[in-house]
């Protein structure tokens, strides 16, 4: 179930003075079961790129292959693709419309052509997975808290049981606890369902811990595509484009400078604890 993005370019408003090139010759492969972090500054083209993955935007040039088939072929079913590649937009809670939480989550599976009963089963499982309790099922989605709304909206896509789950800044505007909650949920989803996850973010912290691979974008181009540890070695280049390495990596680099013998290629707290303990011989 892989997605191949082959030499894709995209311009907004082509042929007018407002023309802007959002993507320039993008090549990525998204493998089965992979957790991919897509990082970039505001306006780097990451949101535009993910909308290509389920055919919402057609590339100006280049092709996208899903399981070896070109998605712009006339006999390719975009409707099926959108069930297979689930896309959660930025601030997904702004798209809730149902009279109650449960019927809103059922919208996706029903569109997929499932029977009412099957759709409800999937909605139930999805809501459970994002940690929404039964007591909220028949409340209006507009009465929930911000974090709950977002989880319901994610459940709305999850209920379609996609093979690839793409999330555009799912942690934007949440407090640290809400952020950790969402990231934890994503990790569980991946473990339990075995689907690939593409997580779009502008924060390295979001992806450092969970992602298998990080793709860094700047001004519509990909500049790094590697495992997190390798990407974070480019601290200076990342800094120049307004991104930064995780705080713990920064702290280790600083300690090294001050003369402590610690590893600088750590990417999370537990690794940092390990190398600091080693340095002090504990």
């Amino acid at each position: 179930m892989s997605i191949i993005v082959n030499h894709v370019s995209y311009s907004y408003n082509p042929g007018t003075p407002m023309e802007s090139k959002a993507l320039k010759d993008i090549n990525i492969v998204i493998n089965d079961g992979e957790f991919l972090g897509l990082i970039g500054h505001t306006g780097s083209g990451k949101s535009t790129l993910v909308q290509h993955l389920n055919g919402l935007i057609k590339p100006t040039s280049g092709e996208i292959y899903y399981n070896g088939k070109d998605i712009s072929d006339s006999d390719f079913s975009l409707k099926k693709l959108r069930g297979d590649v689930g896309l959660v937009f930025q601030y997904p809670e702004h798209q809730l419309f149902g009279e109650d939480v449960f019927s809103d989550v059922c919208f996706g599976p029903l569109n997929k052509g499932l029977s009412k009963k099957d759709a409800e089963l999937k909605a139930f499982a999805a809501l459970k997975q994002v940690g929404i309790e039964d007591e909220y099922f028949y409340q209006s989605p507009f009465d929930l808290s911000g974090g709950q709304k977002r989880r319901v909206a994610i459940a709305g896509v999850l209920a379609m049981e996609p093979d690839v789950l793409v999330l555009d800044e799912p942690t934007a505007g949440l407090d640290p606890a809400g952020r950790d909650e969402i990231l934890e949920i994503l990790n569980n989803i991946r473990k339990e369902r075995g689907c690939s996850i593409v997580l779009v973010s502008h924060s390295m912290e979001d992806v450092a811990d969970h992602a298998d691979r990080i793709v860094v974008m700047n001004k519509g181009s990909i500049i790094f595509d590697d495992v997190p540890r390798e990407v974070f070695k480019h601290a200076r280049e990342l800094d120049e484009i307004g991104l930064s390495v995780p705080e713990v990596t920064k702290a280790m680099v600083r300690l090294r400078k001050e003369g402590f013998d610690v590893d600088t290629d750590v990417i999370n707290i537990s690794e940092a604890v390990e190398t600091i303990s080693k340095c002090f011989g504990i």
């Binding site: 909308q51 919402l56 409707k79 896309l87 937009f89 798209q95 919208f107 996706g108 569109n111 379609m160």
Partner: peptide, 13 residues
């Protein structure tokens, strides 16, 4: 436009 796209991503036609 954004909402339409988001609902299309959920299979709306």
């Amino acid at each position: 436009d954004k909402i339409m796209k988001a609902q299309m991503a959920r299979g709306a036609e």
